[in-house]
Amino acid sequence: MTSTTSSALRTAPQQVSTSRERMRSAIQAAGMLPVLVLLAVGFHLLGGYRFLSGQNLSIVAQQAAINIVLASGMTFVILTGGIDLSVGSILAASAMGGLIVSLMHGFGFLAIPACLFVGLLIGAINGVLIAGIRIPPFIATLGTLTAVRGIARLMGGDRTVFNADLPYAWIGNDGIAITSTLVIPWLAVIALLVVVASWFVLRRTVLGVHIYAVGGNPSAARLSGVRVGAVLMFVYCLSGLLAGLGGVMSSARLYAANGLQLGQSYELDAIAAVILGGTSFVGGIGSIWGTLVGGLMIAVLTNGLVLVGVSDIWQFIVKGLVIIIAVALDRFRQPAART
C-alpha cells in the first residue's frame, strides 16, 4: 500500500465503492427471489413432492398470470407515487363487455377489442380525475372501484353472462405444448410479454425515465420541463388497459363473466405483488422484475398452501403474514430506504 502512487490511492476507494455499489444493486434486483425459491422448495417437500411437477407449475403460472398483468399496470402507477384501486372492478366491467359483444351475431371478433376499450376508457377517466382535476389517486380510484363495480353489474342485468362458444376461449385454456405433460399456458405467455414490454417502456424509453422522475420528485420533473400531467394520464390509462386485458384473460378461462363476483379484491393482490417486489410506495424506486417475482410469490403461496392441505381460513392468515414478514425483512436489508 505504501508503494502505490498517489493517483492510485486516489482512485482506489472509488473502485471499491463501484463494486460495492454493483453488489448492492444486484441484491436489490434479486430482492425476493431467494424467498420465492425457498417457498417453492418448502412446499415441494411438505406437499408430497407434487409442487415442482411440470403440471403443477403450469397451473401456478396460469394462476399467477392475471395478477401479474394487473400488477404490471400497478407498478407504473405506484412508481409515480399513486395507486389504482379500481383494477378489479375494471376487470369485471371489461369482461362483461367482452362477453356481451361476443354474443352479438356477427360481431364476435370485436370481443377482445371491446374488453380492452372498456379498460382503457375507465383508466382514462381515472387519469382525468387525478391529473386533470387533481383528486388524490387513492380517493379517485376508490370512487371508480365502487362505481365501476356497479356498472359491471348493470351491464349484465346483475346476472352471469355465459357463452359456450366464446371465440377467444383458447387464450384461457390452451398453451404451447413442450412435452406431453409440460404445457406453457397462453395466459402465462401473455403475462410474460406484458412484463417484458413494461421493462422496455420503463428502462428504454423517454417516457419510462419521466415516470421515475415524476415519482421521485414531481417538482424537479416539472421544473425540468417534464409534462407531469401527461405522464400521470399515461400510467392510469395503461393500468386500465391492462386491467381490460385481465378481463380478456379471466373471461376466456371461465367462458363467462359475472359483474358481482369477478375480480373482487384483485387490486389488493396486485398491490401486494408490487410491494413484495420492492417498489417504493412513495414512488420513484422499483422494478418490473420485482413485481414479477412478487406476483409469483403470491401464486406459489396460494397453490402451495392448498397442496399442503392448509384450510381456507388459515390460507388468508398465512398469506397476510408472509407479505408483512417479507416486507419487514426487506426493510432490515436496506434500512430507511423504502416504504
Binding site: R204, T205, V206, L207, G208, V209, H210, Y212, A213, G216, N217, S219, A220, A221, L223, S224, G225, V226, S280, G284, I285
Partner: peptide, 30 residues
C-alpha cells in the same frame, strides 16, 4: 425539494430535461 430526483441515477438526473434528444420515436439511444 426542486432539484434532484433522489432515487434516480446521476446520469438520468442530468439528461432529464433533454431526453428526447437521445431518443428516436421515444425509444432511448442508451
Amino acid at each position: 425539494a426542486h432539484g434532484i430526483v433522489p432515487g434516480m441515477a446521476v446520469g438520468h438526473n442530468m439528461t432529464m430535461a433533454t431526453l428526447p434528444q437521445f431518443a428516436r420515436h421515444g425509444v432511448l439511444d442508451v
